[in-house]
Simulated scan of single mutants.
Amino acid sequence: MSEYVTFFLATEDSEAAATRNRGPAGGVVGSFLSADDAVVMWESSLSGRSVEELWEAGVPRMVAPWVNDGSAVFALSDELTSRLLHADAAQLEALAAQWSASVTRDGDELAADVALRVVTGVAGLAREAIRAGWPVYCWVAC
């Protein structure tokens, strides 16, 4: 679980990776989230692929691997970005509720309204990403 989490856009992997030590300027902010677990759960839910299959396929793709201070940057898959882009409000609400319930089952806390804010915010980034032709990334730090 990371204390600081920001989903953001960057033109390419090297630009995104350069944020590892300082964090990006702007984006969708969250805190005390397991962001890598979250995006795998989201993709599993929206695509029907198992969490295990996604982990084995290298999802999410790290662009700045974890270092001792607990920071890293990873890219959301094109498939997840596309599925978030095409999800309607009801699908995003269901995804957020499922994510919040999953985190709670695992013994942590994630309020439903926070989950919905993050999911809808990242879906908004997906719309911007598709228009710009850029990937969506996530920066995490302890």
Score class of each variant (00 low, 15 high):
residue 86 H to W: 12
residue 101 A to Y: 08
residue 95 L to R: 11
residue 115 A to V: 10
residue 64 A to K: 07
residue 90 A to P: 00
residue 87 A to L: 07
residue 77 S to W: 07
residue 76 L to C: 02
residue 77 S to R: 01
residue 83 R to A: 02
residue 92 L to N: 05
residue 64 A to L: 09
residue 94 A to D: 13
residue 101 A to R: 15
residue 74 F to D: 06
residue 72 A to V: 00
residue 66 W to A: 06
residue 62 M to I: 02
residue 88 D to L: 11
residue 71 S to C: 14
residue 79 E to D: 15
residue 118 V to N: 01
residue 81 T to C: 10
residue 78 D to K: 11
residue 63 V to K: 05
residue 79 E to R: 06
residue 79 E to S: 15
residue 103 V to K: 10
residue 111 A to K: 10
residue 65 P to L: 07
residue 85 L to D: 10
residue 107 G to H: 08
residue 74 F to E: 08
residue 104 T to R: 14
residue 98 Q to P: 01
residue 76 L to W: 05
residue 69 D to R: 14
residue 99 W to E: 09
residue 102 S to E: 14
residue 101 A to S: 14
residue 108 D to Q: 09
residue 118 V to G: 00
residue 62 M to A: 15
residue 106 D to M: 13
residue 96 A to H: 01
residue 91 Q to I: 08
residue 62 M to L: 13
residue 62 M to W: 12
residue 101 A to P: 03
residue 66 W to I: 05
residue 113 D to V: 13
residue 114 V to N: 03
residue 87 A to Q: 03
residue 110 L to Q: 10
residue 84 L to G: 00
residue 83 R to G: 01
residue 114 V to K: 08
residue 89 A to Q: 15
residue 112 A to W: 03
residue 101 A to C: 03
residue 65 P to C: 03
residue 75 A to K: 14
residue 118 V to Y: 00
residue 85 L to E: 07
residue 69 D to C: 10
residue 85 L to K: 12
residue 71 S to K: 06
residue 87 A to M: 04
residue 70 G to K: 00
residue 66 W to P: 02
residue 91 Q to M: 11
residue 72 A to F: 06
residue 116 L to S: 14
residue 69 D to I: 11
residue 93 E to D: 15
residue 100 S to W: 00
residue 109 E to V: 06
residue 109 E to D: 14
residue 65 P to D: 04
residue 83 R to H: 08
residue 77 S to M: 06
residue 102 S to V: 05
residue 95 L to K: 12
residue 100 S to Q: 05
residue 70 G to W: 03
residue 116 L to V: 02
residue 98 Q to C: 02
residue 117 R to H: 11
residue 103 V to M: 02
residue 65 P to V: 10
residue 96 A to Y: 03
residue 113 D to Q: 11
residue 118 V to E: 01
